[in-house]
Amino acid sequence: MSTGEIAIRIKNVGHQFGEAGEARHVRALTDTSLDVVRGELLCLIGPSGCGKSTLLNVIGGLLAPTGGTVEVAGKPVRGPMPGDIAYVFQESALFPWNTVDENIRLGMRFQGVPKSEHAGRAEKSLEAVGLAEFADHYPGQLSGGMRQRAALARALALQTGILLMDEPFGALDEQTRMILGEDLSVLLARTEKTIVFVTHSLGEAVFLADRVAVFSARPGTVKKLIRVDEPHPRNPAFVTSEKFTALRNELYDLLHDEIRAAVASEAPRRRRGANGGAP
């Protein structure tokens, strides 16, 4: 899997929304350092509000952190790097007025791919996700799972070395999720992409990841890194193996305290709000 080369270097990244003292001030992420090895799939998991998505947006250049730096391929990230990084978002980010095929071509147009390559690349990426027959469908005509496949195809067509996925299967039902997870594992074994994948699902994290970064409650930082030594593509039988269960349980123990802590830190905030309203 890894040649040991660092694809993404995250150094002391912290981020806060709003200024200290403001009512909406939130310290989402604090002093997070992490190296993502080339070709690996790294899952970010943690309680809600721990800054996983914030970190993903910082890596993708969609958000400038209030502290620290991120380097991609040796260059500091200062904005979107469409040549190196592609995104798959949680909710469907396909343009509803374009067909699946047009969506993929539009992505390539934005990225600046020469027009002569559009047709071939679109076809190849649609085939990779198993949607070749649905090229001329509009997103509104597809199921949720198919829409996310199409979004993945759009990202694949950009042929970036890095893929950022922000809970891409989060809005889907358990079964569709499972199938998409299996297909993704097969697909990724071939592409050798570096992937950072945010998820809430313990099973998904263990099934897909080479390493899982467990986040602490807000302000979030990496609490522990867990390695999943299992070659890609992962077999469905892996889910029922003892190794899987053991890793999943380990994650559960790590996360459980953090989720409790996250909920506890939410509670006084809410109470304070209620008192503020009373005379």
């Binding site: 993708g60 250049g61 969609l62 979107p80 469409p82 040549g83 990084i85 592609a86 995104y87 978002f89 909710e91 980010a93 343009f95 539009l106 992505g107 147009r109 934005f110 990225q111 600046g112 950009l158």
Partner: peptide
């Protein structure tokens, strides 16, 4: 939907391209 603009930006769309597409 803001996500559409964010996703266009992530793929490298210029301001004009976001307006047009």
């Amino acid at each position: 939907k803001p996500i559409l603009l964010v996703s266009a930006r992530s793929m490298g769309a210029s301001r004009w391209q976001m307006l047009r597409w």
